[in-house]
Simulated assay, not measured.
Amino acid sequence: MTQALQTGDKAPDFTLPSDGSGEVSLKDYSGQTVVLYFYPKDDTPGCTKEAIAFSEHLDQFRKAGAVILGVSPDTAAKHDKFKAKHELSVTLLADEDTAVCEAYGVWKEKNMYGRKFMGVERSTFLIGPDGKIIESWRKVRVPGHVEAVLEAAKAAG
């Protein structure tokens, strides 16, 4: 079980396949503010609303000097379909073996209708240009979340 990341901790580096057949490493964004958000599954209601909200605010995040990376255990091919279907503009990363989810402490036991299973706890990390965590949000509720992250990104910039 990984220790929960705290404000001021160095964000664990990673390299993951991305939508559009690319590959993204956290170190690619050294010197920039990164919004790293973890979500359970493409094309589910909450995850779709969150991805659309981040996409709609992408220009404002860019003005604040921040990039947005979304991570789920879905495949890059699934991310491509999800992006096309909902006209998403954020970069989505495929963490199929959940190693990055585990490194960030968001791979948790969940309980739905009495059934226990492992899954992603919707979480967001704001990572500063120095690679350290500025702020984190756990057990995220989608309404108003993107706006709260945007305010924190503006304050960090």
Score class of each variant (00 low, 15 high):
Lys132Thr: 14
Ala76Val: 06
Ala99Ile: 09
Pro12Glu: 06
Ala155Ile: 07
Leu88Phe: 12
Val67Pro: 06
Asp59Trp: 09
Glu96Trp: 06
Ser18Lys: 00
Pro73Gln: 05
Lys49Cys: 08
Ala153Val: 06
Pro40Thr: 03
Glu151Gln: 11
Ile52Thr: 11
Ile134Ala: 15
Ser30Pro: 02
His86Lys: 14
Gln6Lys: 15
Tyr104Glu: 01
Val106Trp: 04
Pro40Asn: 07
His57Glu: 14
Gly8Arg: 08
Lys108Cys: 08
Phe14Glu: 07
Lys116Leu: 07
His145Cys: 08
His57Gly: 01
Leu150Ala: 04
Asp42Ser: 01
Ala77Tyr: 00
Gly114Ser: 07
Ala156Tyr: 10
Thr48Arg: 00
Ala77Arg: 10
Glu109Asp: 14
Asp9Thr: 13
Ala84Thr: 13
Gly46Thr: 06
Ala94Asn: 03
Gly105Phe: 04
His86Trp: 15
Asp74Gln: 04
Gly65Trp: 04
Ile68Tyr: 07
Asp59Asn: 13
Tyr104Ile: 03
Gly119Lys: 02
Asn111Lys: 12
His145Phe: 11
Gln60Trp: 12
Lys10Val: 15
Lys83Asp: 00
Ser30Ala: 15
Pro40Trp: 02
Met112Tyr: 15
Thr2Ile: 14
Val100Lys: 00
Ile52Tyr: 02
Tyr104Gln: 01
Thr91Gln: 14
Pro143His: 07
Phe117Asp: 10
Leu5Thr: 09
Gly128Pro: 05
Phe61Met: 10
Leu26Asn: 05
Ala76Gly: 06
Asp130Pro: 03
Val140Gln: 07
Lys132Gln: 14
Tyr29Gln: 08
Glu87Pro: 10
Ala156Ile: 11
Ser89Arg: 15
Ala94Met: 04
Glu96Met: 11
Val146Lys: 00
Gly128Val: 04
Gly70Ser: 11
Asp80Val: 05
Leu36Met: 09
Pro143Gly: 08
Leu16Cys: 02
Glu151Ala: 14
Gly20Val: 06
Leu93Ala: 09
Gly119Cys: 04
Val100Ser: 00
Ala11Cys: 07
Ser25Leu: 11
Ser30Asn: 13
Ser18Glu: 04
Ile134Gln: 15
Leu92Phe: 13
Gln60Asp: 15
Glu56Thr: 12
Ala51Phe: 02
Ala99Ser: 15
Lys81Leu: 13
Leu58Gly: 10
Lys27Asp: 13
Asp42Phe: 00
Glu50Lys: 02
Asp43His: 06
Thr33Met: 01
Phe82Trp: 09
Thr98Cys: 10
